[in-house]
Design a protein around this nucleic acid. Structure first.
Length: 291
DNA sequence: CTGCAGGCCGGCG
DNA sequence: CGCCGGCCTGCA
């Protein structure tokens, strides 16, 4: 088939898909990945400022891709803005320009980041893929099978033990209770998922923190990667490490998450989440030194 | 064999 | 309140 061609600016497919915000994209090469957005499978190739997009489903394809990769937001302007923050940020952003925050599915983010607690990326991917394979719809694309992330309804009758069979370990009960709470809230008119996008960030945060298995870090990841709330700053052990080296090295007192959060709020402000992803990616790929 | 990985919960001081 | 031990699983 003829690919859909999309012109892009300040966009890097590799940095965007490998910065750790998503768990299911398969890497073919540095310029080519296969993954799932909503109800379709896509193979995307980046050639300079062009994306070639192949999919099993053509209708609204450009709109779906533009929305997922947030291509209608002016990242050139955002990056020009955040490089002024300080030299660490400037260096990081220049190394990984075009890294964008995805607009991913809420349910998938909620469950994936619950699974992420005290876990590592290969195992998180494995669990999310198992859950999709067992409960999601099968899609054939280029003669191979793929599985959509299941809907709430498809998860309705899944038991705690069945989650555990997906290798999620002690997080089984959190997934089970979370799915049940979502279904309960919807059926009792306490929740309309579409409406969550209209909540202000504090309101959304307090709703998310009510789920078992969702603490501050998991909550911030959902706010950032599903709801594009760029002002949040998820702090995991890696971010804690890079922040302490870059900004608190001369400090004598014991560093607390609260201190880092306050620093980000004061200095990174409305683009904290984007800066976090650049710093995290740069550190993990050793593009900046942290000793 | 231990230790530990992109935290969270629950119990305790 | 803040602190701390335990936790599935897989890999070093």
């Amino acid at each position: 088939m003829q690919p859909l061609i999309i012109d892009v600016d300040t966009f890097n497919l590799k940095y965007t898909l490998e910065c750790g915000q998503c768990f299911r994209w398969q890497k073919i090469s540095n310029q080519e990945y296969i993954g799932i957005i909503k109800d379709r499978v896509l193979r995307i190739v980046q050639e300079g400022n062009k994306l070639k997009v192949y999919s099993n489903k053509i209708e609204n394809l450009e709109e779906v891709v533009r929305n997922y990769f947030d291509l209608n937001t002016d990242y050139k302007k955002i990056e020009a803005d955040i490089v002024k923050v300080d030299n660490n940020v400037k260096k990081a952003v220049n190394n990984t320009t075009g890294l964008r925050i995805l607009k991913q599915d809420f349910l998938e983010m909620l469950l994936s980041y619950i699974i992420s607690a005290n876990n590592n990326i290969p195992r998180i991917s494995k669990s999310v893929n198992l859950i999709s394979k067992r409960y999601g719809k099968k899609v054939i694309f280029e003669n191979k099978e793929y599985y959509l992330f299941p809907t709430l309804d498809e998860l309705r009758n899944v038991t705690k033990d069945e989650y555990r069979e997906c290798m999620v370990g002690f997080r089984d009960k959190y997934l089970y209770e979370t799915v049940n709470k979502l279904i309960f809230d919807i059926e009792n008119n306490k929740l309309n998922i579409e409406n969550l996008y209209n909540y202000d960030t504090k309101e959304l945060e307090s709703y998310l923190l009510d789920f078992k298995g969702v603490g501050q870090k998991v909550c911030d990841c959902i706010l950032l990667f599903a709801f594009s709330r760029f002002e949040v700053f998820p702090i995991d052990v890696w971010v804690e490490r890079v922040m302490s080296v870059l900004y608190f090295k001369s400090s004598n007192k014991i560093l607390k998450k609260k201190d880092i959060l306050e620093y980000a709020k004061n200095n990174f402000a409305n683009y904290s989440g984007i800066i976090q992803q650049h710093l995290f990616y740069n550190m993990r790929e050793k593009m900046i030194e942290i000793n």
